[in-house]
């Protein structure tokens, strides 16, 4: 990586930093909106996901990474989604015998 590229990167880091600060304030602000529990959770997680993607893409350089790492993360993401959604799915579909 040439010094020019690094300097360019540093500019990106500063922009991302400002964006993260701003989005943190947004996250807190929307928690005061009275839009009901489910939309509130959805919106809150949506903003958190944007922040997380910013960190992952720019600070962790995922925007420009190698195929091997992408494959690893795809496998991880799939098993993560299974872990999150299948147990709760199973619980919500629990037979109600009472």
């Amino acid at each position: 990586m040439s010094p020019e590229e690094v300097k360019h990167h540093i500019k990106t880091y500063i922009i991302v930093f400002v964006a993260l600060m701003f989005l943190t304030v947004v996250t807190v602000a929307i928690s005061y909106l009275d839009i009901g529990v489910v939309p509130g959770i959805a919106l809150g997680l949506f903003v958190a996901s944007i922040k997380a993607s910013l960190v992952a893409c720019y600070f962790m350089h995922l925007i420009d990474e190698r195929t091997t790492i992408y494959w690893t993360l795809i496998a991880t993401a799939i098993s993560f989604l299974i872990l999150i959604f299948l147990p709760i799915g199973a619980m919500l579909a629990q037979a109600r015998v009472y």
């Binding site: 199973a90 579909a93 037979a95």
Partner: peptide, 18 residues
């Protein structure tokens, strides 16, 4: 192997869909 685990749990009152 990641999406079969609940076959150990049929006796927990699992719903028919799942």
């Amino acid at each position: 192997s990641f999406i079969v685990w609940a076959h150990h749990m049929y006796l927990t009152g699992m719903g028919t869909t799942i």
